[in-house]
């Protein structure tokens, strides 16, 4: 009797889980039939980023240093007022082609100072930045929390394209079709702005790039809104991974070595097993 019970445990356990799953399945199917999930506003109106081509794309991509410098300028003049870049150090700017004295000056002149704690007074003071400092954190008092931009292109799906689309997407209002289903989107809440590229559709950030020439490029490139958005996106790809190019160069070297080794190992394998039936 017990042996029969032990033999049938597997059927009981299996049957038990399957039974509960079938009950759950019935519930799910019933739910889909009776109360089909209504389409959400996000699903209807959210847009995936437009394609963005950058010099750093692809396994053979290289950073365009002039573009990175332009992008840094856009960050400095437009974004840095609200967005931190705390994971980047001033000395990293040498990667962009700036000289040591230039980097020193950028750091010293940086508007947000480095916080310093006064042990004697028990208070916080500030000092000028030096190249070895990280970009100091920016604290934004208004609505919303502007995210730190150092890793933004890695922290969002299709990050660089997302940044570019977001910055240029403020003009894209909800379609008439969508407004029929979601009439509440005809008027954006106060302090918010409609942007179909933002996951939640209404973003607290006002359009930061509103007109051409907002930033003065020194290399002659026309500073259209699209250009500035592209440049800052390229810059943020660099801030997210400054070692990107090194990684790919090392990768080609490693792959070349491994492919050669692969041929040698295959040859060795064949020679070891030559004539041995298997």
């Amino acid at each position: 009797m017990t042996s029969l019970f032990i033999k049938s445990i597997k059927f009981l356990v299996g049957g038990g889980f399957i039974l509960v799953l079938l009950i759950a399945l019935a519930g799910s199917v019933w739910g889909v039939i009776n109360e089909p999930a209504a389409e959400t506003a996000e699903h209807a109106m959210h847009k995936h980023p437009k394609e963005l081509k950058l010099a750093s794309d692809g396994p053979l991509g290289k950073f365009d240093l002039r573009q990175l410098q332009r992008g840094f300028l856009v960050y400095k003049e437009v974004c840095a007022a609200c967005h931190s870049l705390n994971l980047v150090s001033f000395r990293n700017l040498k990667d962009l082609g700036y000289t040591d004295p230039e980097v020193k000056k950028i750091a010293k002149d940086w508007a947000v100072k480095q916080p310093v704690f006064d042990e004697k007074g028990g208070t916080w003071g500030e000092r000028d930045n030096v190249p070895s400092d990280r970009f100091p954190k920016v604290y934004y008092p208004g609505t919303g929390t502007p995210p730190d931009l150092s890793l933004i292109t890695k922290a969002r799906h299709d990050g660089a394209a997302y940044v570019h689309s977001l910055l240029t997407g403020y003009n894209e209002k909800p379609s008439a079709e969508a407004l029929k289903h979601f009439p509440e989107f005809a008027k954006t809440p106060d302090g918010m702005h409609f942007n179909p590229y933002f996951a939640n559709l209404n973003i607290a950030m006002p359009p930061p790039l509103t007109q051409d020439g907002q930033v003065q490029y020194s290399d002659g490139t026309r500073a259209t809104v699209d250009q500035m958005s592209t440049d800052v996106a390229a810059f943020l790809v660099w801030t997210a991974e400054p070692t990107l190019q090194t990684r790919r160069t090392a990768g080609w070297a490693v792959l070349a070595f491994l492919i050669v080794l692969g041929f040698l190992t295959y040859g060795a394998y064949r020679s070891v097993w030559a004539g041995v039936k298997h």
């Binding site: 050669v260 080794l261 040698l264 190992t265 040859g267 060795a268 020679s271 070891v272 030559a274």
Partner: peptide, 11 residues
């Protein structure tokens, strides 16, 4: 026959 094996191991 061994040459290839030595080469593979050395590389």
């Amino acid at each position: 026959r061994d040459y290839l094996q030595y080469a593979a191991v050395s590389v």
